[in-house]
Simulated assay, not measured.
Amino acid sequence: MTLVLFRSFFETDPLTLARALIGVRLLVDGVGGIITETECYTPDDPASHSYRGPTKRNAAMFGPRGHAYVYRVMGLHWCFNVVCGTRAGEGSAVLIRALEPTHGLDQMAARRGTDNLRRLCAGPGCLTQALGLSGAHDGLPLDAPPFRFEARETEPEIIAGPRIGITKAVERPWRFGLAGSHFLSRPFR
């Protein structure tokens, strides 16, 4: 029997949640797969969108935990984050960087314009395109349609390393991945 994760699952600190999400199944309207890579961001992290306080763009980060924070990076790609934290409104989130596709492969391939399974959801922009996520999903609750998070069935081996694509606090090993996975945005060092 599949255990569906509810909002209380996200009510923890981002370092804990970033690890806890590895191996969880994420589905958006029935399309998705197993989360293989995450990054976490805290309010005191200079690389975080919440570092300088609330804005129109990052408002969802300061909203209820267990909601989506979806934003466009460099005007090109959408990025999907899970709002979390030990208290509401603190501005913590976990970026979902990659997943292993398992459901809705034809839909993902059509959205991405490729049938290369390893590249369908390898990177935040690829993942959101494959899952059909956009700014319309920003602020939506993660324990209601179109989202579905299913608990992992086994305890995975998790690896850690520096985050990707940032210029501040790059030394923090706050990128997490499923050890041995072929479905990462980039290999870990």
Rank of each mutant, 00 (worst) to 15 (best):
E153T: 15
N81Y: 07
P124S: 11
V70S: 04
L140E: 13
E150N: 08
R189C: 07
F149Y: 12
D29T: 02
S50W: 07
R163T: 09
S8V: 11
P43K: 11
E150I: 15
R72E: 12
L5V: 02
F147W: 08
E39M: 07
T154I: 12
P173M: 10
R7W: 12
P46Y: 14
D106M: 12
L5W: 04
L76Q: 08
F80Y: 15
A47H: 09
C121K: 00
R97G: 01
P162A: 03
G180E: 14
L21C: 06
M74Q: 10
C84S: 05
Y71A: 01
D13E: 08
R52P: 11
K168E: 03
K56Y: 08
P124G: 13
G161F: 01
G135V: 11
G89P: 10
A160T: 03
E39A: 08
E150A: 04
V24P: 00
G125T: 06
R19E: 13
G30C: 03
H103L: 09
F149V: 07
T36I: 04
E100T: 05
E100I: 08
G23P: 00
L26W: 03
I35G: 04
I34A: 04
P124C: 10
Y71S: 03
L105I: 15
L17E: 08
N81Q: 06
L131M: 09
L26R: 00
A93D: 05
I158Q: 00
S92Q: 05
G23Y: 02
C126R: 06
P156M: 13
A88Q: 14
L133N: 01
T55A: 02
C84H: 01
R57D: 02
A98H: 00
A98I: 06
H182V: 10
E155L: 01
Q107N: 11
R172D: 10
V28H: 02
S134K: 12
G33T: 06
R112K: 03
C79V: 12
P141T: 11
L15I: 12
P64F: 04
G123N: 14
L127D: 09
E11G: 06
G165W: 10
F183G: 11
T2G: 08
E90L: 04
M61E: 03
R186C: 05
L5Q: 01
T38S: 06
I34T: 11
D13Y: 03
S185M: 10
V83A: 00
A60T: 01
F147E: 05
T154W: 08
L3T: 07
P14H: 02
T102K: 14
G63P: 06
R57N: 02
C121H: 01
D115V: 14
T42E: 14
C79E: 00
W174P: 00
A60W: 01
V4G: 02
E90R: 05
G63M: 09
D13R: 04
A110K: 13
